[in-house]
Amino acid sequence: MSETPIPAQKSRLRAALESDLFYTFTRSPVAVVAAFVVLLMLLASVFAPLIAPTNPFDPASLNLMNGFTAPMAANDFTGDVFLLGTDDQGRDVFSTILYGMRISLFVGVSAVLFAMVLGITLGLLSGYLGGWVETIIMRTADVQLTFPSILVAMLIFGIAKGITPVEYRDQMAIWVLILAIGLSDWVQFARVVRGATLVEKNKEYVEAARLIGRGSGAIMLRHILPNVLSPVLVIATISLALAIIAEATLSFLGVGAPPTQPSLGTLIRIGQGFLFSGEWWILLFPATTLLALALSVNLLGDWLRDALNPRLR
């Protein structure tokens, strides 16, 4: 018997393609379309410098004469044609959207990752250790939940901005934004992870690990963490949509991404000034992009929640 060769384990890709999750995915048109849109936007923002016809933030490539060109129409002075038109400074709207989406997605993803790491850590600690650790963490979370998260983000943003030296402010703005949105969003991760941890820690496999003398840290990281991740995945996706919108909101209010690194929110803020003077495209296209992005991510999150919920299957 010992001569029997051990067959190679299924490759991760094979396993993933044969999984039930992938099967339900292919059976859900909404999820497929949403995933396609998200993927497309992700690729477009990663490769923005290659796709964008112009670099809108390189002053040398700008021509003020091109300002306020309508979409797909030749400019009166230069004769240049722009797919989605130009803004007041002659920047190509299509290019600014690509670069703006890049900032939006970067801030959104980073903020969610930050919130996730923080939330999972605190959730695991409070769920597994209990006692005063749990009381402090969860009461803090409760208090934070009583404030709208955008308010918390603005508060954190304000404080952080106040303590950064003036000369670094614009460079630090993006990181401060990530910190602010992340800190305002860790609570739901912590709550879900704590709940799942409370269930898992009473299972017998955790007792078996305690029995052989495994420490609390090893049990939390190696045993419990892998088993509480599926709900986290769902929340992370839905949070991503919320974080993108939060970023846009902050930028729209003028407390987010600086004009030198405009995100979709900044673009919308700039665009709304021109809505009633007839240059509708400066507002409409960034706003539609934001809507499509947030909606797709959200739909994907909704589908994931249903697909991973055993009661709905």
Binding site: K203, E204, Y205, A208, I212, G213, P226, N227
Partner: peptide, 19 residues
């Protein structure tokens, strides 16, 4: 500790599903 071991009731809960 290494002299004592335990077998549990629920064979579904006593093995870590991710291992």
């Amino acid at each position: 500790r290494s002299d004592i071991q335990m077998i549990f009731q629920d064979p579904y809960a006593s093995l870590n599903p991710r291992w």
